[in-house]
Design a protein around this nucleic acid. Structure first.
Lengths: 408, 408
DNA sequence: TGTCATTTCTCGACTGTCGAGAAAAAAGCT
DNA sequence: AGCTTTTTTCTCGACAGTCGAGAAATGACA
């Protein structure tokens, strides 16, 4: 059933519009907000007055010199309105970032990922969270959101890691990482999903609207994929398919996940290693492969080593076949390739194109655009900020029963 | 960018809500509308008055006897408000249905699908359309929508068949089927997409809300798949992946589409025939296989014929592998199986489960629910009506600049 | 014939957007 | 210095929409 609408929802929607304009462009004057949102000047006045009264935005100190005329008054988010913590979990370390409501980074530190089970893992995160808050003298209750990303499969609704390279099928419930005094909402997303979201936003900024849909493919020890789509209402929809463990080849090579024939079992770093050294395909894969090892194989391949070349070719074909299936099931879209594996994209490319070219969608719609974007780390953080602040803004607006007097 | 909102959009949204309630339940009284939509009684009064003035709905003649109290006044769509034509294209025939705005079937006839190219094909449709209109003495200008379905790949935006079993990659633009005097919008959708939409609606009616997402799989000469999802705003999102021609096996059997290794080349009727009779896999597939032929093979399989059994098993594995990839890329969901091929589901089932069981998503999330729903034809028509009327209602509401006086 | 139960309709309060013009405030000009 | 110009912000009244409460309508029932 559809949802009913009312005048109050109109105000909510338009307030969200103003906040998102502020997010996208940072510090805007009254007229600029009006231009960016399409709202009438009078409406912008009403909304900014409300938001200012509610201490969500504030008139900026520094005024933009605009030449003649009445000087502009710039609005921006009130920094102290709330805080965000992002946690980026990678195979060997965990990076914590504390960000204020205006989007500026206040603190960042990285801790090695310890040994042990999920309990000690969660305890370590819990401790790090408290450390982050106390170090910047911030009351944990004022942290509105903790945004976590990891490789692996996240539960669609709850902040639970359903499968991960490290803990396997043992679920990790991150909501347990919040101790007393914390009231933040916790979200967990696949890392490459955030990359896709960030790329969609970047493209939209670069050229008006940009791609309506795109995929991000992360190449590394494991294989990740995210899809971002500009939905009907204008807000982006992002999803993280389980691409790395999609079936590539029935009864194929053994994968870390325990299944056989996953894409990752052909295109992950450990798989490239396995093929290059002619280790049997049913060998339990290496837990961790230093990137230097892969670089060595790549160097060999570039110098003519047949098995090394074959390893990359097989990886490319697995990726290409997988992408062809992606296009079959999700429609045509450009693919942005990122992650440490992009260093050896030259060795993968031919195989990928071979793996793609056979399917009907590619024969009809042509080869998809394959673009390499090496700097994965900044994309992940960008994706965190995009997603987290859109949720925070939404929550803040929705949680105010009636704007009315908030006192001054 | 988000869209701005305004009070007028609120009215549009709520009018649509009222109309959709009327669609779903048929003939409703003031209070019932209020209950179904959640709108205040006064609001329902305002909206129904508007819609009545605009001659979109009308007070029904027959009154429901409700016991004591002021008698209820039932509203329903005004039949003459507009008309809908649905065209269901199958491999050997084309079925035309004329439906009035209230959803009642006025006329239906089926014509054999002639020989010849796209031009004669379109001309035949054009002629049939005019015939449908004149036979019921309806001005073609009052047909608001022509909703077409076919197997194959439809263009996401325009009513163009990008690939079809009959015409191959030669595009068919159905908007050319409208001659002078017709002003209807034309939409084209994959047949199985409509099935998925109909199933989603059925499930929602059966139990509150029902499945949030489901897939429909159609088994026949070709293989079709549709996905229906209850979206964030409550309105269903449906999509038709190119499942039948997704890659099953690299360098595999030759498919009708010209590619190799498509799922259809293993699970379509012609593929079952090919395997059962041990015809080489690179043989150009049969244009058309009578269902009796498949029934014969199935009977043989049930009596122990090894090759016949193998044919169905291979088909099942291809479908199962394909579905496992669907779940990997779209998340877990139940699969409703329909089409003439369901008659032999008993022979396919084991292979499908084998093909599904290997992948990580299935190992983690369990085997998806596989449900057989044989009556495909009524699902297709139901899907046409659901989709068409939601579009028609939307258009009607949006196209009225300002309700105001519409005269009496 | 009068009362009752139930539904529909109407009124006033409230919230929201919009366009137009008034007010503000700095730069430029004489 | 004082006036004009220019640009931005603010304010006011008109208009559209929803909602709750209560009035009006109307057939059933005693």
């Amino acid at each position: 059933m559809l949802a009913k609408s009312s005048t109050e929802l109109v105000r909510q929607q338009n307030s969200a519009l103003v906040l998102s304009a502020l997010r996208r462009h940072g510090r805007l004057a009254h007229t600029e907000i009006s231009d960016a949102t399409g709202l009438a000047s009078a409406t912008v006045s009403a909304i900014t007055a409300d938001l200012e009264r509610a201490r969500i935005i504030e008139k900026s100190e520094q005024q933009a010199v605009s030449g003649r005329g009445r000087p502009r008054v710039l609005f921006s988010q009130r920094r102290g309105c709330g805080y965000l913590v992002t946690i980026i979990i990678s195979s060997d370390s965990i990076q914590y970032s504390l960000v204020d409501y205006a989007g500026t980074l206040l603190d960042r530190f990285t801790e090695p990922r310890g040994e042990g089970g999920t309990a000690t893992f969660l305890a370590a995160i819990s401790a790090a969270l408290t450390r982050a808050a106390t170090r910047s003298r911030i009351d944990p209750a004022r942290v509105l959101l903790v945004s976590i990303s990891s490789k692996g499969l996240a539960h669609p609704a709850a902040p639970v890691l359903v499968w991960s390279p490290v803990f396997g099928a043992q679920p990790v419930d991150f909501s347990q990482a919040l101790t007393d005094g914390w009231s933040a909402k916790v979200i967990l997303n696949n890392e490459t999903l955030l990359v896709a979201g960030a790329l969609l936003e970047r493209e939209a900024k670069r050229k008006g609207e940009g791609e309506p849909v795109l995929a991000a493919l992360s190449l590394g020890h494991s294989i990740g994929l995210g899809i971002a789509r500009r939905g009907g209402a204008g807000l982006p929809e992002i999803s993280a398919p389980n691409f790395g463990h999609m079936l590539h080849m029935p009864d194929g090579g053994l994968c870390r996940c325990g299944a056989r024939g996953c894409i990752e079992a052909y295109a992950g770093f450990y798989a490239i290693l396995r093929t290059a050294f002619e280790v049997p395909m049913d060998t339990i894969p290496a837990k961790f492969v230093p990137i230097a090892e892969i670089d060595k194989i790549a160097a060999g391949a570039r110098q003519g080593n047949r098995m090394a070349q074959l390893a990359f070719r097989h990886a490319g074909v697995a990726l290409g076949n997988g992408l062809s299936r992606l296009l079959s099931l999700h429609g045509h879209m450009p693919v942005f390739i990122t992650g440490p594996g992009t260093r050896h994209y030259d060795l993968l490319q031919a195989g990928m194109e071979e793996g793609l070219s056979q399917t009907q969608v590619v024969r009809l719609g042509g080869m998809p655009n394959l673009l390499v974007v090496p700097d994965e780390a900044s994309l992940v953080f960008e994706g965190h900020l995009n997603l987290a602040f859109s949720i925070i803004d939404q929550d803040i607006i929705a949680s105010r029963p009636h704007m009315q007097a908030a006192g001054e």
